[in-house]
Simulated assay, not measured.
Amino acid sequence: MRTAAFPTFRKLYRKIQDSNGQQLNLPPGTYQLLTYYNYPVHRFGGGKFFVLATTSWIGGKNLFLGWTYAIVGAICLVVMFFLLCISRRNHNRD
């Protein structure tokens, strides 16, 4: 086991799929989950929780990472254009 990068994290336990690999929607109702206490967390003040989440092919509903990639990519394009202009100007002087 590795130490988590952030103080709170989620670990994927299982995906609900049919035999063809298609995702299924759970009908409303009461469900039970049997868990074992293999890794005690009370020593360091931790806790364990069970979360049902809907995710897409790009992850959860947090868009921070996607926006970060887009902004960093745009900044790289601006810097590249700026350096290209400087390079062309210096090349024309020779």
Score class of each variant (00 low, 15 high):
residue 26 L to T: 08
residue 43 R to E: 13
residue 37 Y to M: 05
residue 94 D to V: 07
residue 41 V to L: 12
residue 21 G to T: 09
residue 21 G to Y: 04
residue 78 V to I: 12
residue 67 W to Q: 02
residue 78 V to D: 00
residue 76 C to Y: 04
residue 93 R to W: 00
residue 53 A to K: 06
residue 50 F to K: 00
residue 23 Q to L: 07
residue 70 A to L: 09
residue 62 N to M: 06
residue 70 A to Q: 03
residue 39 Y to K: 05
residue 38 N to S: 12
residue 40 P to D: 14
residue 59 G to Q: 03
residue 39 Y to C: 01
residue 55 T to D: 09
residue 15 K to T: 12
residue 83 L to R: 05
residue 90 N to H: 05
residue 85 C to T: 04
residue 79 V to E: 08
residue 65 L to T: 06
residue 86 I to Y: 01
residue 25 N to A: 13
residue 5 A to T: 13
residue 74 A to L: 12
residue 30 T to N: 14
residue 47 G to C: 01
residue 77 L to H: 00
residue 20 N to R: 14
residue 90 N to D: 13
residue 9 F to V: 14
residue 74 A to W: 04
residue 79 V to C: 02
residue 3 T to M: 15
residue 68 T to W: 10
residue 37 Y to W: 14
residue 76 C to E: 06
residue 31 Y to M: 07
residue 38 N to H: 08
residue 9 F to C: 12
residue 39 Y to R: 05
residue 63 L to K: 03
residue 1 M to E: 15
residue 66 G to I: 01
residue 46 G to K: 04
residue 73 G to L: 05
residue 31 Y to W: 11
residue 22 Q to R: 14
residue 83 L to E: 08
residue 73 G to F: 07
residue 22 Q to S: 15
residue 43 R to H: 09
residue 26 L to H: 11
residue 8 T to L: 13
residue 23 Q to D: 15
residue 2 R to T: 14
residue 41 V to T: 09
residue 7 P to I: 04
residue 45 G to T: 05
residue 86 I to S: 03
residue 49 F to I: 01
residue 73 G to N: 12
residue 70 A to W: 04
residue 8 T to F: 13
residue 47 G to W: 08
residue 92 N to V: 03
residue 45 G to M: 02
residue 23 Q to A: 13
residue 44 F to A: 11
residue 55 T to P: 00
residue 89 R to M: 07
residue 9 F to K: 02
residue 73 G to D: 04
residue 26 L to D: 14
residue 46 G to L: 07
residue 15 K to A: 13
residue 69 Y to L: 10
residue 60 G to F: 02
residue 66 G to Y: 01
residue 76 C to A: 14
residue 38 N to K: 04
residue 31 Y to G: 06
residue 6 F to T: 15
residue 42 H to Q: 14
residue 18 D to K: 01
residue 61 K to N: 12
residue 63 L to I: 07
residue 39 Y to L: 07
residue 94 D to Y: 07
residue 40 P to Y: 09
residue 42 H to R: 06
residue 83 L to A: 03
residue 31 Y to C: 08
residue 86 I to H: 02
residue 60 G to A: 02
residue 29 G to M: 13
residue 72 V to G: 00
residue 69 Y to I: 10
residue 15 K to R: 15
residue 3 T to I: 13
residue 24 L to G: 00
residue 26 L to N: 14
residue 4 A to K: 06
residue 54 T to W: 03
residue 4 A to E: 15
residue 58 I to W: 09
residue 54 T to P: 00
residue 46 G to Y: 03
residue 22 Q to K: 10
residue 73 G to P: 00
residue 5 A to L: 13
residue 59 G to W: 02
